[in-house]
Simulated assay, not measured.
Amino acid sequence: MGRKPEGALRRGWTTGACATAATKAAAGALLGGEFPDPVSILLPKGDRPAFALAFEGRDPGPDGGAATAGVIKDAGDDPDVTHGALVLSTVRRGAAGSGIVFRAGEGVGTVTRPGLPIPPGEPAINPVPRRLITGVLQEAAAAHGLPADFEVEIAIPGGAALAEQTWNPRLGILGGLSILGTTGIVVPYSCAAWIASIHRGIDVARATGLEHAAACTGKTSEAAVARLYGLPEGAFLDMGDFAGGLLKYLRRHPLPCLTLAGGFGKFVKLAQGFLDLHSGRSQVDFAWLAERLAELGAAPALVEQARGANTAIQVLGLAQQAGLPLAEAVAERARTTALGVLEGAPVAVELLIVDRQGGIVARTGRLPGSLPGRHDG
């Protein structure tokens, strides 16, 4: 996630809201002959935004043909990968008694693993967007005295490439993006979407029977764990800065074994008791690091150097030059913080501190060696 700009930020709309608006416009054209533009929808919390149409199309084929409408996704000031994407909905009449059937068009993924709120084989259109889309279709049908039997296909051209920048491949959502949103509103730089992705990763790991997951702060630490263990892709959780969001969810939905891996500075903050490791929301306490060095028997001059240091890595380098196991001490305390958050949940926790080159500089709480697929030498 990029750095948050200063000042008031503009909200945006989720892919689910855009798909709902496009569906309402397409249904209006299919049943009434005209595309409403702009088209307004009612969101779960009472907001009623209006969306301009970016695309209108008709297919006069059999059984009444089909109508397609498109809306450009506006994520406001959020650095959302789908900002500016075209969200299309194609609506056609369904067979009598079929109800509303969802299809995945170009760029929308299909669920292939259990553990997500949508079962395998279904388009990756989440429950709230399904509910909103169903509502506008039922409303359109009732206005024309017709049964609500429709097939609705949601597409996002180019979505397959965009999905590679998301968690979808790891979650087993293949072929494109998910249609998401619980409120319909994108709050810029919100942590909620990232934390929700961590939760879904845990759900999928549990549902597919994985015994060991790895939660990493970034690509370097993830690569270090990948070299250490023979874990499948779905076992890796992109924790980022959200240690608290991960651990609190695992407390209620445990996995047998967890490897936490990250850089020294991040885990200094976890060792201090912080659960949000972002630089804007928690800071390394150099006096705290100096105290740890003093406990390890560092000379007073070294302790004072640490107290006035600029970075955690600088302090680690000083400790390494003096032959003092500061990384190991920090790892132990960080693991203690993690175990405290888990509150006795049946999760065995290992913690790795990884340097910028991907080397493991501290390791504590080694996991049982009997887990399948383990290659830790």
Score class of each variant (00 low, 15 high):
5 P>F: 08
8 A>C: 03
9 L>C: 04
11 R>K: 15
18 C>G: 01
20 T>A: 03
23 T>A: 14
26 A>S: 06
28 G>N: 10
30 L>C: 12
33 G>Y: 13
56 E>Q: 15
56 E>H: 14
69 A>M: 14
78 D>T: 12
82 T>S: 14
84 G>N: 09
85 A>Q: 05
89 S>H: 01
90 T>Y: 02
105 G>D: 07
106 E>Y: 06
110 T>P: 00
116 L>G: 07
118 I>T: 11
118 I>R: 07
126 N>S: 06
126 N>K: 10
129 P>S: 07
139 E>A: 14
139 E>N: 03
142 A>E: 15
142 A>I: 06
143 A>M: 13
145 G>I: 05
148 A>Y: 07
163 A>D: 04
174 L>F: 12
176 G>T: 05
177 L>G: 02
184 G>N: 04
201 G>A: 15
207 A>M: 03
208 T>L: 10
211 E>M: 13
218 G>M: 04
219 K>A: 15
220 T>P: 02
223 A>H: 08
223 A>L: 10
225 V>A: 07
226 A>H: 03
228 L>Y: 11
232 P>W: 11
237 L>S: 00
239 M>R: 01
247 L>K: 03
250 L>Y: 06
255 L>T: 12
255 L>C: 13
259 T>I: 08
269 K>D: 00
270 L>I: 05
270 L>K: 06
275 L>N: 04
276 D>N: 14
277 L>Q: 01
278 H>L: 11
282 S>K: 09
283 Q>Y: 14
288 W>K: 10
301 A>E: 15
319 A>G: 10
322 A>Y: 02
325 P>H: 10
326 L>Y: 07
326 L>H: 03
330 V>D: 04
332 E>S: 00
334 A>W: 06
335 R>Q: 13
340 G>E: 11
344 G>L: 00
345 A>L: 09
354 V>T: 07
356 R>S: 12
358 G>Y: 05
359 G>W: 04
359 G>V: 06
368 P>S: 11
